[in-house]
Design a protein around this nucleic acid. Structure first.
Lengths: 178, 178
DNA sequence: GAGAGCATGTAAGAGGTTACATGATTCC
DNA sequence: GGAATCATGTAACCTCTTACATGCTCTC
């Protein structure tokens, strides 16, 4: 379960509450690497506490609801560093569009073209989002190494979208010629 | 749930049992589009019967276990064709490697290089598998349209792997230079 | 007064994986 | 005798999503 390691990684940077994780991490940059919703974050935090990988401190607040602030333990750090160096199996990718195209092969060209066009539109939007991230101002707090890695990761995501878009355009061309 | 539609698509080609689906479909070409294990196939078949999208006929065999052969209903076909034309949201991709790299940024170069090399190895193997499929003999039974689509889909998968590999090599270069 | 922000959580369900169970036949 | 093939299924579990519930404060 990689989400557990994402959370360990985030807590190793800084102590945080479940709410912090959701709002300041999983709504930001990390969300492009690993999406997680609130329900699952809270559940995973409980699990990590049970495994002694993190600890929880209740922070009493008077004008706001109390917070449960989590910090990583030595055991948690060891677990994290070990995972960071272990080779993970290639993720399984399931793309509804490819299934649709496979079975739509015998349907009229117009159907196939419509599917491809819709996908092209969605992917183009996503590419614009990624390019916006690439150009967004850099976090002054982060190290050179961190910034270099960030650039590298954004570059991959952009390359992937660009490849998909190129393919969609080529596919559209070949169906429009008929 | 796209698996239901994959099964509808396969049953629309030909009547099949759960076992047929697992062995002759989800171990073959379809597996590259949508993996599914046996337990889930049986569960989904039950669900589709309950929804009147497919029907089941028991085929008595004497030297072998009986088979439950499923066929698609008119309702099922209607449901399938509608789905085939509907735009599906972009799938969420979660890549452990990218999370690892993100948090490994402050670790020694050697760690990062090792991760990239392992991934490069795995991706290169996958690319070879895909290229083998592209070159494998064509199914004489399938139509020209079907073959064209097949080529297009294989082409996408190859392009995606190639993009990933190019990126891995560039990333490796930039870390090895230090 | 309405809505947004802060902060926690539960419940229910969809989708997917792993492992186990059964029992006949065929092949080495 | 042991393994593979045929053919069905169940049980337990993991991951993730959606929706709901609570209750206080601050701003418009």
């Amino acid at each position: 379960m990689s989400l557990a390691y994402v959370i360990l990684g985030l807590l190793q940077q800084e102590n945080r509450s479940g709410y912090d994780l959701k709002i300041s991490c999983f709504n930001g940059c990390i969300n492009h690497l690993w999406t997680a919703d609130q329900a699952q974050i809270y559940k995973t935090l409980d699990k990590l506490v049970a495994q002694d990988l993190i600890t929880c401190t209740l922070e009493i607040q008077h004008d706001r609801p109390n917070r449960k602030v989590y910090s990583i333990t030595e055991l948690g750090k060891a677990e994290l560093y070990q995972w960071l160096q272990s080779h993970q199996p290639l993720p399984v990718v399931r793309e509804p569009l490819l299934v649709q195209l496979h079975f739509a092969a015998q349907l009229p060209d117009q159907t196939i073209i419509a599917l491809l066009e819709q996908e092209l539109h969605a992917r183009s939007e996503k590419l614009r989002d990624c390019q916006a991230i690439a150009l967004s101002p850099k976090d002054i707090m982060s190290s050179d190494r961190q910034q270099k890695m960030h650039q590298l990761l954004v570059d991959l995501v952009i390359r992937k979208e660009q490849t998909y878009i190129d393919w969609l355009k080529a596919a559209l061309d070949s169906y429009r010629k008929n």
